[in-house]
């Protein structure tokens, strides 16, 4: 475990989490959420939990992003607030 690498990933995690919450465009928010999942996947792979990282890459970053985007297309693009 390299702590400099950890710090970088964790900072990006917080940044992407805040962006995913703040951005008004739902399509953009779900894409940023995909980036968030990839960063968590990196963190787990780096900690040695390869199985969990694999699941996160396949489910969290891959399929759930696609499913969220598929759902976004059946809503209006921008949130009201």
């Amino acid at each position: 475990m390299i702590w400099q690498f950890d710090i970088i990933i964790l900072i990006f995690l917080v940044v992407t989490a805040v962006i995913a919450l703040r951005v008004k465009d739902l399509l953009g928010a779900s894409m940023v959420f995909g980036i968030y999942s990839f960063l968590i996947c990196l963190l787990w792979a780096e900690m040695g939990a390869v199985d969990v990282a694999f699941t996160e890459a396949a489910v969290g970053a891959g399929v759930s992003t696609v499913i969220m985007i598929a759902t976004v297309f059946s809503t209006t693009r921008r949130s009201k607030d």
Binding site: A53, F54, T55, A58, V59, G62, V63, V66
Partner: peptide, 13 residues
């Protein structure tokens, strides 16, 4: 690393 869940998700994807 891997297994039924990951492989199944990739096949579905």
């Amino acid at each position: 690393p891997g297994g039924g869940f990951q492989g199944g998700v990739m096949l579905g994807a």
